[in-house]
Nucleic acid binder design. Structure first.
Length: 956
DNA sequence: GCAAGGTC
């Protein structure tokens, strides 16, 4: 090789890469720079030798995509075609106005070059941009030799290797993006036009969109994002709080307080909880069974990726992801932080991390920490742990220039820069270290544990002020030590609905479901706000608006997953197939557009679902065209219906003439005119026949081809009823009304549907959506009512009487021992006892045992019995009741005469055997001494005994 | 007036 130098045009995806690569290749020797046509994209020049071939290198860049995709002009206007046509309408790629200058630079430089080397990012979008550049350059110079440089990092070795091993551009990658673009465009435009026009014609929605021009956009990323918000909102609405019970235990000594948590967490079954609690307070002595001291590290975060930056800025500063990215971009432009759009959370081993720390040594706030990091004696340094993501293009976000704050910076700039620096310093720091001691105790076979922590080393916590890790002291315990709990209580609790989605949650969700890219997620979130689909509160949490909820509800009612991430997931899989050469672009386009078109046509047939969903929240408009509303038009006559306004000649949205009352929508009087009219002008001549006058005559001109030949195209007509020609032509040609002719006329108005409380209506309607808890009654598994209104439940729990133990056989009633209120029969609706009956005090709050200090107080404030379980657990008490001692305090003695057992024993007829054997061999027996065979030990599952005598548990 | 994807 060798010989004459050739001229090589090199193009990168962005100016910064052009500059970096040019610097690396030229080693900054003889590097010249000049301006191109575009103010951002300069041209670097230097000499280089590729495999022995001397080259004069010209290095410039684009700004991401050079081209856009859109429909041909005749389909651009919204009313130019049926939205369904957009699935086939011709599309073309073009260079938009703001990229024309880049195009000119490429053309001019390409003309004097022999080679074109593409340095676009090495991902699918980059490959697609490469082909856009090829298109522009080869159009200017068809003789170009085209080469692709593949590189994964902007470092010397990588770049030199890339240029010495040039490859062919990957058409499959580019094709995948082409398909994605086309599908996005066609689906987006079709559904956006369809739903916008549908809703704007049917409802008053301007009120919720600030009166701005309303576009109800649909997109394969924005809609699933909205879907996440709505879905969570529905989950919250559907949540039925469920009561649970938990035993809490605390112990105070001279050394402090330990709060012990119950190993079972909580139980939904009140009876079970009471039983276990009773066991505990019968034998309240706690025995320390285990004391486990261990050192526990708390690790610093992984190096910072874009999504993490957005999530953390949202959590720490309540900064929106959109604002974060704007500020980060500005910090990047100013050279203060590295490239902010990166998926990488792993530093390359080649990155000089120490140098980055060194830069920060002079900072008034964190400079000292940076110095400590660099001091080997301090032992604070630790090489960062990566999170396993690498986009092969950019490093994690890190500071690139020291700043103690610039004069032009806003508070947001300061906060974000500080976060980036602190995050970086934390990454290269040792984890914090704590000494944790877990103490386990046993009370009557129930296990509880408490944990104390002492922070031994703060390490990274000193710099990462956003993470909290506190110590908590508990007294010292020794194994075998016993004590009486200071408090031992059975506390109620209830399940809470999940929280609204925060911005950080939303980003995580999008990331997980592959909605959008790290560079675009914040755009999709912002779009929800811009389109009035959702609002964000002060806590950065998202709530759907009526509009957003109605749209999702409408599609959901149709049974479509258009608002779910599935569609995007399928597209993503298709793109992957194309980029791997397993499917062709045409194949993917064909099938997926065909499917989407079928889906669209079906959705349009089912548009009533969308309309119904919208009607829950919005006032019906009942207009035919937007012009009918605005009260303009020339007066034809006084309105005979409302007798308040004038009837005026107008055109509806489709360009058809009509004479309607100016008081629309209050007055809906209208005269529809033949659809064949091309012109209509109200004259000053009044009709001589029609009353009450004046009824001004209208000069019509008809379209020749739309009326029978026997009629004249010009006609001076009257809409007062006397004009037979007009009547005939209306009959023959029909009208411009979209409504069927028979339903029309002044009295054909449909009543407005206006729900004054749309939310409450919505929640009713929600019952048929999405959340199975709402859709199906949790008691009887049937639809048509909520769990709260289940007939199987209300029949019992709302019994007007206060029955006795057994309503059927008329036994005596039960009174609460505490307040004397008769106890009502209820039916358990908790997991393990669903459908079972029990008695419970009707007085609110009258329910619980209380153990105060060390004096056991049997504040048994509820008469309770599970009919099916009493002989398992509560025979003693039941027997007490049966002995006429109802209302007594909860029994503590085992004094029930065995002879009384049989009384309610009939309910034990489910085959529960009672053979009278005793408990001495570890078999659990009921309080009456009967063995229990159909219950299992909570601890080991063994049916032969119950947990309080389980041999597998220590301490007893 | 419509999408999502690059990037200043």
């Amino acid at each position: 090789m060798g010989g004459r130098a050739i001229t090589v045009l090199n193009v990168a995806e962005k100016p910064s890469v052009a500059k970096s690569v040019a610097s690396i290749l030229s080693r900054n020797q003889g590097l010249r720079v000049r301006d191109g046509r575009s103010r951002y994209n300069r041209i670097f020049e230097f000499n280089y030798t590729i495999r022995g071939q001397p080259c004069q290198m010209l290095f410039t860049s684009v700004l991401g995509h050079l081209m856009e995709l859109d429909f041909d002009d005749r389909y651009r206007k919204w009313h130019s075609c049926d939205p369904a046509d957009l699935f086939q309408a011709p599309v073309h790629k073009f260079v938009p106005e703001d990229k024309k200058d880049i195009k000119r630079t490429l053309e001019e430089e390409a003309r004097r070059c022999q080679w074109l080397i593409l340095w676009l990012d090495c991902d699918r979008e980059g490959e697609n941009i490469a082909f856009e550049v090829i298109n522009v350059c080869t159009a200017a110079n068809p003789n170009l030799t085209i080469k692709r440089a593949r590189f994964s990092a902007l470092i010397d070795r990588e770049i030199h290797q890339a240029v010495q091993n040039l490859v062919e551009p990957n058409k499959w990658f580019a094709d995948a993006v082409d398909a994605r673009q086309e599908i996005d465009l066609r689906i987006g435009a079709t559904f956006t036009r369809f739903q916008t026009m549908l809703m704007k014609d049917a409802f008053v929605i301007d009120t919720v969109t600030d009166g701005r021009n309303t576009v109800l956009s649909y997109g394969p990323c924005q809609f699933p994002t909205l879907g996440f918000v709505v879905e969570r909102y529905w989950e919250i609405q559907a949540h039925e709080p469920e009561e649970f019970w938990l035993i809490k235990c605390s112990h105070r000594s001279d050394e402090g307080v330990a709060n012990f948590s119950w190993e079972r967490g909580h139980l939904f079954d009140y009876t079970c909880a009471v039983i276990i609690y009773e066991m505990c307070i019968e034998e309240p002595t706690a025995t320390v069974t285990k004391v486990t001291p261990k050192e526990k590290p708390k690790y610093p975060p992984h190096p910072l990726s874009t999504i993490e930056l957005e999530k953390r800025a949202s959590r720490y500063f309540r900064m929106s992801s959109e604002r974060t990215m704007k500020v980060a971009e500005e910090l990047y432009q100013g050279g203060f932080i590295s490239y902010p759009r990166t998926e990488t959370d792993n530093f390359s081993s080649r990155t000089d991390l120490h140098a980055i720390v060194q830069e920060q040594q002079g900072h008034p706030e964190w400079g000292i920490y940076a110095q400590r990091l660099l001091d080997p004696g301090a032992g604070l340094w630790r090489n960062p742990r990566g999170g396993g993501h690498d986009d092969q293009a950019h490093p994690p976000i890190h500071p690139t220039k020291f700043s103690a704050g610039e004069s032009g910076w806003s508070q947001d700039h300061r906060k974000l820069y500080e976060l980036v620096v602190r995050h970086f310093l934390a990454c290269v720091s040792k984890p914090a270290l704590g000494a944790e001691t877990t103490v386990e105790i046993d009370i009557a076979g129930e296990r509880f544990s408490a944990c104390g922590r002492v922070i031994l080393e703060r390490n990274y916590l000193d710099i990462y002020i956003y993470d909290r890790w506190d110590g908590s002291m508990i007294p010292n315990y020794a194994i075998g030590e016993q004590f009486i709990p200071t408090t031992l209580t059975l506390d109620p609790g209830k399940t809470n609905p999940p929280p609204l989605l925060s911005e950080a949650d939303l980003l995580s969700r999008m990331d997980k479901e592959c909605i959008g890219t790290d560079a675009t997620m914040h755009d999709h979130i912002k779009k929800l706000l811009d389109r009035f689909y959702a609002t964000k509160d002060a806590n950065m949490c998202f709530t759907p608006t009526n509009l957003g909820e109605a749209l999702v509800m409408g599609y959901d009612d149709m049974g479509y997953k258009l608002w779910k991430p599935d569609l995007r997931a399928v597209m993503e899989r298709d793109m992957k197939s194309v980029s791997e050469g397993n499917k062709s672009k045409a194949e993917v386009l064909d099938t997926s557009l065909q499917q989407m078109k079928t889906c669209f046509l079906d959705a349009r047939l089912n548009k009533v679902k969308l309309l119904e969903a919208m009607a829950i929240f919005f006032e019906r408009l009942n207009r035919v065209g937007s012009d009918e509303q605005n009260g303009t038009g020339v007066v034809v006559r006084r309105c005979r219906l409302c007798q308040e306004s004038d009837m005026v000649l107008k055109k509806n949205r489709d360009g058809n003439f009509m004479v309607g009352c100016r008081s629309y929508p209050q007055c809906r009087s209208v005269v529809w005119l033949p659809g064949s009219i091309s012109e209509a002008v109200v004259t000053t001549n009044a009709c001589n026949n029609c009353t009450p006058g004046p009824v001004y005559l209208i000069q019509f001109k008809f379209q020749q081809l739309k009326i029978p030949p026997s009629y004249n195209v010009n006609h001076l007509g009257c809409i007062g009823g006397c004009d037979e020609i007009l009547t005939q032509l209306t009959e023959i040609c029909g009208t411009g009304s979209r409504m069927p002719a028979r339903g029309r006329g002044p009295t054909a108005s449909t009543s407005n549907v206006h729900h004054t409380n749309p939310r409450s209506t919505a929640s009713t309607s929600n019952a048929h959506h999405t959340n199975p808890r709402q859709a199906v009654c949790s008691h009887c598994q049937e639809t048509g009512h909520s769990s709260n209104d289940c007939p199987s439940q209300t029949r019992r729990s709302r019994n007007p009487q206060y029955p006795g133990m057994n309503q059927q056989n008329g036994e005596s009633s039960v009174a609460c021992s505490s307040c004397g209120t008769p106890c009502g029969l209820q039916t358990a609706n908790t997991d393990s006892n669903r459908g079972r009956d029990f008695y419970s005090c009707q007085t609110q709050g009258c329910r619980f045992f209380v153990l105060e200090e060390q004096n056991i107080v049997h504040g048994f404030e509820t008469a309770i019995c599970l009919r099916e379980s009493y002989d398992l657990y509560y025979r003693r008490w039941v027997d007490d009741l049966n002995n006429g001692s109802e209302g007594r305090s909860f029994p503590r003695s085992n004094s029930t005469p065995a002879s009384n057992r049989g009384r309610n024993g009939g309910r034990g007829s489910r085959g529960r055997g009672r053979n009278g054997s005793n408990s001495s061999n570890g078999t659990f027996v009921s309080a009456t001494g009967d063995p229990i065979s159909d219950r299992r030990c909570y601890t080991c599952g063994d049916p032969s005994h119950f947990a309080n005598v389980c041999p597998n548990r220590g301490g007893l």
